[in-house]
């Protein structure tokens, strides 16, 4: 397949990026790793007249962590950066699991987390965990800056709320909390190197041995990442060993709206949501319990 004709710009400062976006607007596409954009262009699914490459702008790929502000991923932070970073492994193991589930080594070395989000594929592996983890995104344009909860970025398959002149500048994940665990599980036909037919992020915070708060976010089973609020809320006050957990996946399985395609039927996806939600909660619980405070005091910093 042949690539459309386009002009390539390689700006060296953020201001130049924003100026180019302002000038070309809807005719332009921003390129981070290019692993989605170039494929779409070569298939003729998008035909931008202008491509703005970000790789020459210094600092956009920074990954920063501190215990107070949490984790900050610049828009050029690659999936493999997240996978390999010791702070992520220590404090955000579910983000590493999602990064690991993303495509192949070669693609992870090029693809960025921000690109994975902006591509807005319903099966994007990195969206559910980041949403569950309460991440927000900063969108920057010459008109200014705005910050949104990540869940509000998505409008539909391939569609985001980004305005034509806006750039997703960075992703911020709140700091790790006491007695809290998250996990990401995905299912595909191959054990590795595959696109997920179902992806589930789940997390919970324990206090006095009971669920103080829970989050369940599903990928690939709805047009956008599906936040199963009711099912997560229903877990509040439950003990991890209670009967509530085996059935915790049933409500989200009911509530999501998977499609049937060549990767899996809608019915199978629904069944797998139920299984994976339960398993993800089990793994998240184990992680929460690894923190001694889970069985004792109610953590002070639990916030919605």
């Amino acid at each position: 397949m042949s690539l459309c004709k386009f002009a390539y710009h390689g700006p060296e400062t953020l201001d130049e990026v924003l100026a180019l976006l302002a000038e070309h607007g809807p005719a332009a596409r921003v390129m981070a790793g290019g692993t989605d954009l170039v494929v779409k262009m070569s298939r003729g699914q998008v035909a931008p007249a202008v491509v703005i490459g970000l790789k020459r702008v210094p600092g956009l790929g920074d990954l920063r962590f501190d215990p107070v502000h949490g984790l900050e991923l610049g828009c050029m932070t690659r999936v493999s950066d997240v996978l390999e970073h010791p702070a992520v492994a220590a404090h955000y193991p579910a983000l590493a699991e999602a990064a690991q589930a993303t495509a192949t080594v070669q693609i992870r070395n090029m693809a960025t987390i921000a690109g994975n989000l902006c591509n807005a594929s319903p099966c994007a592996d990195n969206a559910p965990t980041l949403i569950a983890r309460g991440a927000s995104v900063e969108l920057r344009s010459p008109r200014g800056s705005r910050t949104l909860p990540l869940a509000e970025l998505f409008r539909g398959p391939g569609q985001t709320v980004l305005a034509p002149d806006e750039l997703l500048l960075c992703i911020t994940v709140p700091p790790p909390r006491a007695a809290t665990g998250f996990a990401y599980l995905s299912l595909s036909q191959r054990s590795a190197v595959d696109v997920s037919a179902v992806g589930v992020a789940a997390g919970l915070t324990l206090a006095d041995g009971r669920v103080a708060e829970a989050r369940i976010v599903l990928g690939a089973v709805a047009p956008t990442p599906f936040v199963a609020t009711a099912a997560a809320d229903a877990l509040r006050g439950q003990r991890p060993a209670d009967e509530a957990f085996p059935a915790a996946g049933d409500a989200p399985a009911e509530a999501c709206s998977p499609l049937g395609d060549v990767r899996a039927s809608a019915g199978y996806r629904r069944k797998m949501v139920a299984v994976l939600v339960r398993r993800a909660l089990e793994r998240a619980t184990a992680r929460a319990l690894a923190d001694g405070r889970a069985r004792t005091a109610r953590p002070a910093e639990v916030t919605p």
């Binding site: 036909q189 191959r190 054990s191 590795a192 190197v193 595959d194 696109v195 060549v262 990767r263």
Partner: peptide, 14 residues
């Protein structure tokens, strides 16, 4: 399923 994304050939890791 005319792509390696959806034609599920086992890879080295499988």
């Amino acid at each position: 399923n005319a792509s390696f994304l959806d034609y599920k050939m086992p890879g080295a890791l499988d």
